[in-house]
Design a protein around this nucleic acid. Structure first.
Lengths: 209, 209, 209, 209
DNA sequence: GATGAATGAGCGTTCATTCAT
DNA sequence: AATGAATGAACGCTCATTCAT
């Protein structure tokens, strides 16, 4: 036996099977999926029961995850709420920017009102939640900046339309229209089965166009 | 007899008190006073902090009574809430019955709208609370009968006025007006310092009168 | 039948058996009893397991009460801890004030040291707890004022004794003595079965007297 | 052959990576580096916030590694703690063995005390941590053997010195000195800004030399 | 070796409600 | 009628630890 032929310092060449950690992209994808699952579960529960009567446990159960995981993605229940609300305005914001920067005809005005109400009806959970928070000062303070950013384009376009129309007080008339639309949505959400939503929106449009 | 053996410090198991006689009326009066004290305290605290952030302890402290006593008058916190809300509509109901059974002129219509908004402004706490509950299904279910009783006279008078005016869809137009008024009030409560409430109500009246 | 003879307005005389609410004294007594029960349970558990490893549940269970009740008496777990620690210094404070305002002989100095160590041995739980907190900055900040008030008389008397003895640096020597005593106690608590506490305190006294 | 039918985007179940060969030494080196990074991060955080208020996440973040990796090197958080404490005594142990096996003069005794305190001041984080654990029975049980091994040479040398000096109870006097030193260090760590550490250590030395 | 998403037990705390007095 | 001590379920949240990758 000649041990001298063996070189113990020579690096051993292995083939090592290594479970690589997930790539950043994979993690990003997981996170997005999870966040959306949490959003979906929260939105439904908040809209159904209200914020205070919905517990983190309920959300976790509905989303099919462990309670603690929610805190990997959101700092607190309140943080989840505000991000959820803001997230829900995405479509509205986009619509305003892409289509209604300028309203120069009665026809376009009608379309704006119509599209707005349609968006609400397509995202009922979100808008119901939003309206249920309108009088919660502490929540509104947290998202008022975002709300301003969201609704200002709408208000601006409407106001300009009323100026063109020759309104005596275009700004206030825009606020009134806005409030009336809110009132209709709230009325609808308060009693969806019996509220004559479509007819009422039609009359509203006629009164302001 | 050895009085020394009697322990006068021994606690009395029951204290039997011979009450100064109270008539049923006196008792009723005490109850009403207490209930109003509890209502006042609750209303203020609910308006300030919201329902969930107001505890029974806080209400008791503010009303100057013991926690347990509240349960002599109300079955539960929710029961207190619903009775409180209903109680606050008293003025509105009375006004509708006494003054606006029949609206037969533009002038009277204007007065109705004006008086309604004034009532809201005079009982801000109550109306703020009411609006904050509008989308809480479980609360609304409990008081919907009372609400119907309260608002139906108003709706009826308005609808009749719109019929007289020749509206194509008087009932829906009444609902729209009603919703718009709610929207204005909610808008006002949401941002009382900057909301152009008086101007907006004026324009609203003009649009519907 | 002559109903006219009945006076329905005449107040009805009842004997009403009323369960009177507890008197203030009774309540005060209950509260003191409860507080002491909580103190006893906490002291033992904190001394045994440390502050962080002792949960409010454990304290409640040991005290034989419901978890929530602890919060009727203490604002928080930290509040309980600080009040508990301060409470435990009562004897020491009293001893210093009543007996050791002035130390004018070697004999009295010996007695002071002896009495101090005896107090520690008589309230082992308290002193063990205190020493276990010495390096917890956030706790010490909360009670440092009380500690100052507690130990200053001791330090003052000792310092004066060292001045009389002609020490070059009486204040620092007092601090050294104080620290050495702490060191002995900590050493004892760290290994009570094998630490030669009595012999060590004797030598300590000889070195400083 | 139809390559088009192969889905190259299909995620690989395992990624088999052929590692560049690593010698055992290299692996060992990596491990030591990691362990020291974890030690450094832990020591600082424990000293800053205490053991219970420092989470594994915080340590991982500070050490710049992933949470899970810590469990490759330590069985548990408590395991990390004990190994960290023991590791920190290295200098002290070495000093005792190399320089103070025999103390045969007042001069050398003074040097020992001085060097000991200097070591503490040079490794404040470590010693503060050690003292904060002195009364945690469950931790001390885990490291008592190591502590014995660490401090016994010190105790032995001191005891022998006191024997030479003709002390009546050299062993207990050594324990007393040891405890007093601990007391001084704890006093210093408890209030580093105002504690007269240097003066106190000088007086201590004089009393025992 | 390295990652960080995921778990779930357990924490301190709150509070509507009960009940002996 | 009135008191407030007492309860205990439930809450939001933390974190040591695991494990698929």
């Amino acid at each position: 036996m000649n041990l001298g032929r063996l070189n113990f310092d020579r690096p051993l060449i292995h083939k090592i099977i290594i479970m690589s950690p997930r790539t950043k992209e994979q993690i990003e994808e997981i996170r997005n999926t999870r966040i959306n699952e949490i959003f979906d579960a929260s939105l439904e529960l908040f809209a159904e029961n209200g914020y205070h009567r919905t517990s983190i446990s309920m959300i976790a159960k509905k989303a099919g995850i462990a309670k603690g995981l929610i805190y990997n993605y959101f700092k607190s229940k309140e943080d989840l709420l505000t991000l959820l609300v803001i997230d829900g305005f995405g479509d509205f914001k986009e619509l305003m920017i892409s289509k209604y920067k300028k309203i120069d005809s009665k026809e376009k005005f009608r379309q704006l009102i119509d599209d707005s109400f349609n968006l609400v009806m397509q995202n009922k959970h979100h808008w119901r939640l939003y309206y249920s928070l309108l009088l919660k000062t502490e929540i509104m303070n947290l998202i008022s900046n975002k709300l301003y950013e969201m609704f200002m384009p709408f208000m601006k376009s409407i106001t300009e339309y009323f100026i063109i129309k020759g309104s005596r007080n275009p700004k206030t008339e825009a606020i009134l229209l806005f409030s009336a639309m809110d009132g209709l949505c709230i009325g609808y959400f308060s009693a969806p089965k019996i509220f004559p939503f479509d007819e009422a929106t039609k009359i509203l449009t006629e009164k302001f166009e």
